[in-house]
Structure formats: structure tokens, C-alpha cells
Design a protein around this nucleic acid. Structure first.
Lengths: 119, 119
DNA sequence: CTGTATCCTCCCTGATACTG
DNA sequence: CAGTATCAGGGAGGATACAG
């Protein structure tokens, strides 16, 4: 199969996954089904409130995740993957698998280089 | 299937595809098999020499593409996808398909919104 | 608890000129 | 032809404070 470069839609898909925290946020939501804002903040080490909000909004804008607000005090907001968002599953799985293999690939490359130098 | 967020390798794969011109460069090389530097520059509208060089180097560093220099004057350099780089094929194809569908999804969403407003 | 609002820094990208 | 060098702009991301 050949994708016509001029009609390339890869960048569109890429743009939606790109963002420092998006993959890990998606994986958490996929694993737990639903997470509150505070749960995500706790589960994603190092993220700030601002960035968590921003990345969630961007995913919501693309219909990948759903935001449900419970009108109560204190506030409660739950996030979850949408049915549509599930269509990203195979892509994320494929990327995870490729990434895992690539880590091994790089290690082998490094090993080879080190061996050559010490000889 | 559940990817453990803590062991997430999605970002590694993502990092390799990210770069303003990488997807289209890869698609051109996949389509034509081999391309000279000047051919790529001509085929990728808007790219500068500096960026083309940079993106190519990054892909080369990850063993996705191969660079062959012919020692002659004027210089001739050919780029091509490596055997290993071909392993990205299914991912790019999946992303292209998803992206194509997503474009439709967004159009439908926009249509709906417009219809609601005019009522 | 779930966000905004500012301010600030870094680095990706672009424009342009130069080189073997 | 196939690059490298330099300078500059903008936007993503981070720190911190404040708000409903």
C-alpha cells in the first residue's frame, strides 16, 4: 500500500496524540475507565494543574475523551474515553509495541558500538 | 489489552515520528524507494535545506532511513527507508486511515453545530 | 476540588547567507 | 549539489499565585 504524500493524513492523527502528557493520560483513562481530575493529577507524576487541564481540553475538543461535571460542592469532574476515542486503541497499542522493540534495537546498536571500540 | 502507563513506550515511538516534515519525508521515500536530497527538497513543498537536513539526520539516527553518499563532483546523496524502517509501515498506514476518518468526523460535527445554530 | 491567570524559559522552526 | 552557520520569532511547557 502506498499513501499519497500529498493526501497524507498522518499528521492529523499525529497532532492529536502529540503533547507531553497525552499518551499517559489516555492510557490511564483506558486502564481505569474513568478518572477524576485529582486522580489523574495524582497518577501522572510531575504534571501541573495547568498542563493537565490543557491536555484534557485538547483531547476533549477532538472527541477523544468526555468530561462530566457533577454540580456539587466541592466540585467533581470525571474524565473518560469516548466510544470514538476507542478507535485510537490499535494505534496506541501498535506504537507501544514498536516503541518497546525500538528500545531493544537501540540497546543492541549501542552494544555493538561499544564492542567495536574496545577491540 | 491494557498498556501499563508506567511502562508506556508510546512516547518513544511518537518522538521518532514527530517533526514538522518527517511524515511526508517518510511517505515520499516509501513511495519512491530512493530519493536524492534535491528530489526530496523539490517534492516537499516549503521545506528549507536546513530543516530537510535536520529531519533526515534524526531519522537516520534512529535507523529509519539510510544515507548513501556517492563521492563525486557535484555531490550525490541518496536516502532510502531501511529494512528496519519498514516496520513503521503499519503504524503510518493506521494513522493515515484514522486521520482520514477523523477529518470526516470533524466535518460531521461542524455540520451538526451549524444546523443547530440556524434552527 | 477543579480549575484560571501571569510570567518566564527553552527549543523548534524559518529566513538568509555562505561553503566544498 | 548538498550541505553548514547564524540570527530571530513563536509557541509549548513550567512555576506560581489566585478563584469559585
Amino acid at each position: 500500500m502506498t499513501i499519497e504524500p500529498e493526501l497524507c493524513k498522518v499528521e492529523d492523527a499525529l497532532g492529536i496524540l502529540v503533547g507531553k502528557w497525552k499518551p499517559i493520560i489516555l492510557l490511564h483513562l483506558m486502564k481505569h475507565g474513568t478518572q477524576r481530575f485529582s486522580e489523574l493529577k495524582r497518577n501522572v507524576p510531575g504534571i501541573t494543574q495547568k498542563m493537565l487541564t490543557k491536555q484534557l481540553r485538547e483531547l476533549e475538543d477532538e472527541d477523544i475523551i468526555e468530561r462530566v461535571v457533577y454540580p456539587q460542592v466541592p466540585p467533581k469532574v470525571e474524565y473518560s474515553i469516548t466510544e470514538y476515542g476507542r478507535s485510537l486503541d490499535p494505534i496506541l497499542a501498535a506504537m507501544h509495541e514498536w516503541g518497546t522493540n525500538h528500545t531493544i534495537h537501540k540497546q543492541q546498536k549501542l552494544m555493538k558500538k561499544t564492542t567495536e571500540q574496545s577491540s
